[in-house]
Write a protein that binds this DNA or RNA. Sequence first.
DNA 1: AATATCGCTATAAAATATGATGCGCAAGCC
DNA 2: GGCTTGCGCATCATATTTTATAGCGATATT
Lengths: 119, 119
Amino acid sequence: MPRHSVQATAEADHSFCPVYEAINILQEKWTLHIIRSLLQGPRGFNELSRAVGGCNPATLAQRLEKLEQLGIISKTIHSTMPPRTSYALTQAGQALQEVIEAIDRWSRAYLPKPSEGLP
Amino acid sequence: MPRHSVQATAEADHSFCPVYEAINILQEKWTLHIIRSLLQGPRGFNELSRAVGGCNPATLAQRLEKLEQLGIISKTIHSTMPPRTSYALTQAGQALQEVIEAIDRWSRAYLPKPSEGLP
DNA sequence: AATATCGCTATAAAATATGATGCGCAAGCC
DNA sequence: GGCTTGCGCATCATATTTTATAGCGATATT
């Protein structure tokens, strides 16, 4: 039996497939950007917002909440009244670095550069 | 002809970052599912639709067109009038297997099981 | 001949993302 | 003291996506 081969039968066999689930999580808009930013260290809300570049607060808040529920990031409140928070990756979140790195390698190898790219 | 451009209207330094681009491509809904299905071999439109599970034809067609433009998949038309087509991964597409495998490993290691999962 | 399948497109509605604005409050500065 | 800035979001109206549903021409199956 191959140790890690991506396997799924052809016809809708999504009874429970971890990969399928994972893809559903990671494909949500901004999620991967958020994780990539947090791989460089914990950040506050607005800081994160600037780092991911262009995500509006509502969406960002929603993503962060969901990722927290999933145990991928953790939220730490440092002070209640001058609201100071920081978001960081949990162990599960850190593990996603492999995914980001795979994307990184792929992008450098196969992504058309803008200079010679599309019309 | 839908021309999709990523918004780089950020204060952040996303001048041109391949990873950022790649994430923007891969995070579109169904894209990773499509690629994962095609990793098992070429498929026709409806076949793919069933394999992906739940993507409607309009979205699927749009994704496929975009992925073709990006050089990730290739479309082969076998006969014009009883329309018979098949979609397959190009070399760039095949290379995404690494990404899928990374997601696969991560999901098995860190994804909460459904028995103890969501409300 | 009736029906099913194939690869898609058209249409409208539903879901989601977005931008703008604003809140309370601490800290910096003048 | 008064003024502004920045923080972490909530709210709301609007843009953008995604979805459901229906359907086409044409062969294949019953």
